[in-house]
Design a protein around this nucleic acid. Sequence first.
DNA 1: ACAAATGATACTAATGTGGTATCTTTAAAG
DNA 2: CTTTAAAGATACCACATTAGTATCATTTGT
Lengths: 129, 129
Amino acid sequence: MKLITRDTDYAIRALCYLAASDKDMVTASELVRVLKIPRPFLRKLLQILNKKRILKSYKGRGGGFLLPKAADKILLMDVITAFQGPLRLNECFFKKKMCPDTKVCVLRRKIIAIERYVFSQLRTVTIAS
Amino acid sequence: MKLITRDTDYAIRALCYLAASDKDMVTASELVRVLKIPRPFLRKLLQILNKKRILKSYKGRGGGFLLPKAADKILLMDVITAFQGPLRLNECFFKKKMCPDTKVCVLRRKIIAIERYVFSQLRTVTIAS
DNA sequence: ACAAATGATACTAATGTGGTATCTTTAAAG
DNA sequence: CTTTAAAGATACCACATTAGTATCATTTGT
């Protein structure tokens, strides 16, 4: 099972390229050329990233894309959730039925703890890598 | 995005029921009745669990399923991989192209570290919860 | 022999992922 | 003020995965 889909993967690459580029405005065409991602697909991804304010777009001739903030402020976590939605381990396994209210579901606690750790860690990963 | 699919979820419930049951042999019919999982689907899951040696089945009249070992020795991790395969975050984002060999991909390191943590934690979660 | 259980296998429906196609809007350059 | 090079919007399609069904074969206690 993949935890990071192709969308996210491509998006990361594009963002990294933007971060590394010295000219601050980069066109989709350039990204297609260097990243070898199918043009219409990449364009869709860029549009999504734009809507989520992860990058900024400029229309018209001479337009393109650029990062709206420093690369080390862009969280991997945000890119993942942009494409894959909030990733949750699971709702309660037992839908509150069997859960003994004394222990308040050790299992659930543990899983939530793991979840939290992953999120906190993912949040430390930025584009500046 | 779900990290635990319905298969896994159902399987966990079934295993927990087996663990909690005092009679050690439980039929699929009984599981269907109490867990309210579609019969043919549950039967498929049980067959898979049997093949993976996570539970043991007995055919014929009076047959059924039981746990082959103590509930606290059955790892959530194993159940997950049984149904969802080994879960990997992602191959290398850059397919070894851009990776500067000096830093040997900080990103990748971090991700692997997170992955390892999740696995180690998941391995601590057993059916005895 | 029969009935009650699981095993094996093939099929179907719904959803998600990866990708395409087409048309509209914006804005700089000539 | 027209052309042209960019992005925006939207609808569509192919394939894979997930969730679930159906059917028949095999085993085993009574």
